[in-house]
């Protein structure tokens, strides 16, 4: 389990280390839905982590996921870059599964 739904406020994002994955998994909750994304900005080949501080993945207005290396903004629901250096690219989705008790898991 990555975390519990109750530990993630609406509009909040958190990053989780997952054994076997070189980058964290970002879990972001927005308007009642939970999305999973690899913590890899597609600006540079191979991807680079995006937060400026632990779990600081969102832009100031909390409307987009942001890479704090060079200011790329990503749509929280689709992962598409809407502003910045990787315009036209997108984040890699991580399928998530919600169990009946509100636990958030990788769906694999």
């Amino acid at each position: 389990m990555l975390c519990h739904l109750a530990d993630l406020d609406d509009g909040e994002a958190r990053g989780f280390e997952v054994p076997g994955l070189k980058a964290k998994v970002i879990v972001v909750r927005r308007e009642g839905r939970v999305h999973g994304w690899r913590d890899l900005c597609p600006h540079y080949a191979g991807g680079t982590p995006m937060a400026w501080k632990r779990d600081a993945y969102l832009n100031g207005a909390r409307t987009h996921l942001a890479c704090h290396a060079h200011g790329a903004w990503f749509d929280i629901e689709t992962g598409a870059c809407v502003q910045g250096p990787c315009l036209g690219k997108r984040l890699t989705r991580v399928p998530l599964r919600l169990d009946k008790d509100g636990g958030i898991h990788l769906d694999r």
Partner: peptide
């Protein structure tokens, strides 16, 4: 280099 909320390193 550190990432920052200034939108640049």
């Amino acid at each position: 280099y550190f990432k920052s909320p200034l939108g640049c390193n």
